[in-house]
């Protein structure tokens, strides 16, 4: 009996570890709000997603690599790398790791906006992406 219980607990643990790839957007949005960001606005996020920034004489935006139809795969405008759809409803593994989201915000904001995004901009973008 004792042993059985132990095995069941073990199996449950395994199961939970396996399904731990939940969407981290709500948790991240809360975190940014705790740091002073407002409730946020998905429409503002969409506007920022489409906004063009001139870098080295060429226009760059989020959508130039990720497309505007976020249920479709995009491709990097410079390298041609295929980028899996951003929509969490299509690519289930999207937004499953906080660290990875931070990493790509840092890289892509600097590449497109030539600066880091503010926490408010990140909240807006995350809310926009969450709806896809």
């Amino acid at each position: 009996m004792r042993l059985n219980q132990f095995i069941i607990v073990c199996l449950c643990c395994l199961f939970m570890a396996n399904t731990a790839s939940a969407n981290v957007i709500p948790e991240m949005v809360e975190g940014f709000q705790a740091q002073g960001a407002s409730v946020g606005d998905a429409d503002a996020g969409e506007a920022l997603w489409k906004k063009k920034f001139m870098v080295e004489g060429k226009a760059r935006s989020c959508q130039s690599c990720h497309t505007l139809d976020l249920t479709k795969a995009g491709s990097h405008i410079r390298t041609g790398k295929i980028i899996e759809p951003m929509a969490p409803s299509v690519t289930l593994t999207r937004f499953s790791e906080v660290k990875k989201v931070h990493k790509w915000f840092r890289r892509n904001c600097k590449w497109v906006l030539s600066r880091e995004c503010s926490i408010q901009e990140k909240v807006d973008i995350l809310l926009f992406l969450q709806k896809q």
Binding site: R78, T79, K99, H102, K103, R106, R107, N108, K110, W111
Partner: peptide, 12 residues
């Protein structure tokens, strides 16, 4: 890494 052959590849 900030300019990794034209891309930003910064890491933690």
């Amino acid at each position: 890494l900030e300019n990794h052959f034209g891309d930003n590849a910064e890491l933690d």
